[in-house]
Design a protein around this nucleic acid. Structure first.
Lengths: 248, 248
DNA sequence: CTCCCCGTTGCGCCCAGTGCAACGGCTCTC
DNA sequence: GAGAGCCGTTGCACTGGGCGCAACGGGGAG
């Protein structure tokens, strides 16, 4: 679109192949060296390229700080919304989007079931990490040490007869979740609700959110819910991909 | 320097504060929204910004791939050279710059001692990881698991009477190196040579190279060498800082 | 000392980037 | 349901700024 910016970005990308002198850089994008110099100077002023003592240019530290900030500033909800809507359209059940926040699960988005019997929840509602499918998915991705630390610190109330009651049991289940790539909640929080969840991953591969389908036990037994996992996984994959900007 | 590129980079940096609509972005840098749009489009074509489903712009995945590539393409030698020269000027001893390569240490730069009795070495020379101060520094930064793995795989020849002979002894010493931030070699490779080394860190904090001062034992005992450590640490810090592009 | 290489700078041309204004799809309101 | 307002998009004419050229200068090699 705009020629100048276009050239500047091409020259920046070309530096990814390795440091270059002024003339090399100019040749790479086919412009006069004076033009390349002005572009590189501007990039340098902003820290996107760095000048080595031998006068060659290389990629600069600003790229790192920006990449770091980008990870934090991205809003998952917006990216996920249409995909969740499509999933909800297909299966008709309650769909949730949740993130890990202060030792609890927070539901940041929700689409209502089309079935007459619905489970209660709302956006902003919080749930225990120990007794929800989304909680397990979010915990399972933590590094081994941190996972153990969190598991030890959590409380394990008996929400139902099936609730997980010990750190050991939780860690064992998390290992399984890591392996199979999805988690299930069989009436572990509310007696009448089952749930399956899958991870949504950020650009760096880390889990940033979890996406789930929840159903009252009277509407769908766990077996029925399991058959929805492929669709759920596809949805999460689509969100992860788009969230990554297609590149990365 | 060039107005267009300058504006594009400012708009890019402003997105680090969070996603923005077209008008917000235009206001942030004080240009007409049509101008901002052209800039953002160009940035988008190159993947530096990404458009969310709600039409807002956020930082794009290209930043991550570039940041990744930058880590690999940076040439430590060029950045370190003047600092090493200054260090050599001050202390008069042999100064080395070394990196970890294929299970050995490779000296990538060297400045000669001003003393008549000199140790032998040259750029490109390789040395064992187990019996050199630079080797210990480079090993000490590896993650725990990888460190143990490498330690197990290495050989432990008796270069001298003081050479480290077992993985256990090496790992114990590496723990100390991690703690104190520098490593020493007391005639462990060559009977007549002592050496102290410190790490040079990349933008991500990982050790990318090691810098050392080596002396024949007849010129300086270990005690004398230890007094040079602060200067050595300052030198390494200066290199690390410049290597990071001043930002990051 | 001269030559050569490469980064730097001043200059004039003209193209490309800019701001304006009109368009259109969308949502909210009455 | 019509109107209003918001915001992204597009076509256009102007001119400012980006462009290539050519000359300068410093450092290294022969």
């Amino acid at each position: 679109m705009t020629q100048t910016v276009d050239r500047a970005l091409v020259i920046l990308a070309s530096l990814a192949e390795g440091p270059a002198s002024l003339e090399q850089a100019a040749n790479r994008i086919g412009v006069h060296k004076s033009t390349a110099m002005r572009l590189l100077r501007t990039l340098e002023e902003h820290g996107f390229v760095h000048r080595q003592p031998d006068y060659r240019y290389r990629l600069g530290g600003r790229l790192f700080s920006l990449a770091q900030l980008a990870l934090e500033s991205i809003d998952v909800r917006v990216v996920a919304a249409p995909h969740l809507a499509a999933l909800n359209e297909r299966c008709g059940h309650t769909v949730h989007l949740a993130v890990h926040e202060d030792g609890e699960v927070t539901y940041v988005d929700k689409l209502e079931s089309r079935y007459p019997v619905r489970m209660y929840s709302r956006i902003g509602k919080r749930a225990p990490l120990t007794a929800s499918a989304v909680g397990k998915v979010l915990l399972a991705d933590l590094p081994e040490a941190r996972r153990r630390e969190v598991a030890e610190a959590l409380e394990y109330p008996a929400y139902t007869a099936r609730s997980i009651r010990t750190p050991e049991a939780l860690l064992e289940e998390l290992a399984q979740v890591r392996e199979q790539g999805w988690a299930v909640d069989r009436s572990e929080y509310e007696e009448t609700v089952n749930c399956v969840a899958v991870p949504i991953r950020g650009i760096d591969g880390r889990v940033i959110a979890a996406c789930s389908i929840s159903t009252p036990t009277v509407v769908a037994p766990v077996g029925t819910l399991r058959r929805l996992i492929p669709d759920l996984l596809d949805t999460a994959a689509a969100v992860s991909l788009e969230y990554g900007g297609g590149r990365g």
